[in-house]
Design a protein around this nucleic acid. Sequence first.
DNA 1: TTGAAAGCGATACCAG
DNA 2: CTGGTATCGCTTTCAA
Lengths: 340, 340
Amino acid sequence: MRNSKPTLQDVATAAGVSTATVSRCINQPAQVKEKLRDKVNEVINRLGYAPHGAARALASRRSHTIGAVIPTIDNGIFANGIHYLQRGLSEANFTLLLASSNYSLDEELREVRSLITRGIDGMVLIGEEHHPEVYEMLDRHQVPVVNLWTYNSQSIHSCIGFDNAAAGRKIAEHLVNMGHKDIAVISGIQIDNDRARERIEGVRQYLQEKGLELKPELVRECRYSAEQSSLALTELIVAGHPFSAVICGNDILALGALSALRQLDIPVPKTLAVTGFDNLEITAALSPSLTTIDVPARRMGTLAATYLLNCIQTGNRDITRVQLPADLKVRETTDMTHSM
Amino acid sequence: MRNSKPTLQDVATAAGVSTATVSRCINQPAQVKEKLRDKVNEVINRLGYAPHGAARALASRRSHTIGAVIPTIDNGIFANGIHYLQRGLSEANFTLLLASSNYSLDEELREVRSLITRGIDGMVLIGEEHHPEVYEMLDRHQVPVVNLWTYNSQSIHSCIGFDNAAAGRKIAEHLVNMGHKDIAVISGIQIDNDRARERIEGVRQYLQEKGLELKPELVRECRYSAEQSSLALTELIVAGHPFSAVICGNDILALGALSALRQLDIPVPKTLAVTGFDNLEITAALSPSLTTIDVPARRMGTLAATYLLNCIQTGNRDITRVQLPADLKVRETTDMTHSM
DNA sequence: TTGAAAGCGATACCAG
DNA sequence: CTGGTATCGCTTTCAA
């Protein structure tokens, strides 16, 4: 076996052609006569030649790589969408550079900077709110971006997602229809998180419209962890302000809430109704099963791949906004008559 | 603002020094006199210079990127470990290239090939069994690898993980100790999945040693999806061979099983005990909470980062094998007397 | 401590 | 349709 990896030059020499021809055989095979092409391909296989990504990226100014920065890979919330993003990219021979920001816009900026330095051809972010420098850098480097998990018809950036405020309203509406008047909220940390803010704002507005109120003393913020949520709910209960339903910022928080309620022997939904957000696969299998919002993670991932690949291929930089449905899944934690 | 991004040359010219000096300021600042360094840094900031990753990789033969191919990013099973891998890399200014194989060794090979072409400095894989060409390519390109989620003291490749067979035994032992004799298994697809095979083999061996038997008619394989598992368990029950416990290949499968049992109104663990594998955050919050194996996902991720970074820095290619504990978490699905 | 210059491995334009 | 060759942006000897 050859000492070190063969280069384009090696292949060219061995095949008795120029490097230009070998390069064409790989990138525009149609432009090379079949006979010659076959010969070159034979040599390529014999030598076990594989193109050098960095050299290629340098010369062509395309890295065939797209970057994504998501708040966390820790649980299934974003992982599911990223999964389909990755599959879409992989089919087109693109690779995914993945980073996480820990729900911090400053960390996000750092990761974006690092990804841009690495020469990504496109970028996926979560939410619309980002450090201004993020947009500035992306723009300066002409990197197309798409924001996921968010939809805003006014946005000056491309987005593929759903209306978080509307989803929040749906939850509130459902609870109000079930007769709830005193509603508590366990939200994720709202700073640096526009989705969380919009969801709660949707709830607040709907209640207001119905002459109800989202009482500040019934709202808690905590990290997206089941444990933190358990604690938050317990505090809320101990505090003594009455409420008959609790809206959780996502399914993980809802899980924590359910766990606390079970320990406290508080029946769900009889004494307290609970809702989540995301429709993780597991939520349907819970007992009681969780009422939640079905987030279109799969489609967001797939569409993001399609969108970015198209931007890259065509050079098109038009803003695209795609609104996907995010429907309420009514299950047992809000409706004891609900049958699976 | 400058029309296109500034290069090293631009910085050098603007600062009145050579490109070599600017390069040193960035990579070995200690070798440049403070005064000059300050000046160069000032220019770098003023121009908003950012190094070009591909050019850097080409010249230095280091991409500052490590690749990982995991079976799926779809749920939290591997995502959690990858999260910490990514954080470890990020701290060292490395980036993670992520791909998924859909539990297929052929797809894995394809992804590995693509990652190597992209010039990764290190590689993370799940399990020890891979397409022979995977190891061959990695070797030829001198890319250090570490296998996660597996531990084998005899392995000729580095691994950081736990003993899957031993974990399987622990589950079997626990169930036998609880008085179970007829035990069913819902496993993930075993082909291309050494972890799944080892786990079930551990169960089988333990039962054998105790004079019991893992009856073929009580074993089902299915995709790692809650739905598939629900179906599999229902079939198992309909088939009529009696059993009092079911071991599930991972927590997702266990979730599906619990969901089916709830629909069939079969009490857990009274009539049927259930176990999972992975200890996803949510399993503790379930009702009944799930007995499962606590997989050291976080440590595997963190240690993999440390290990690979060390290999890359020192050039050391010694095989390292790290065995981490994977303990049984006994909870309510196997033990009604269990208190949280 | 700094600078000059030779690559790194491909791409792509321009001729022929 | 094929070949020659100038880049791409940075790192890294080798000298000074």
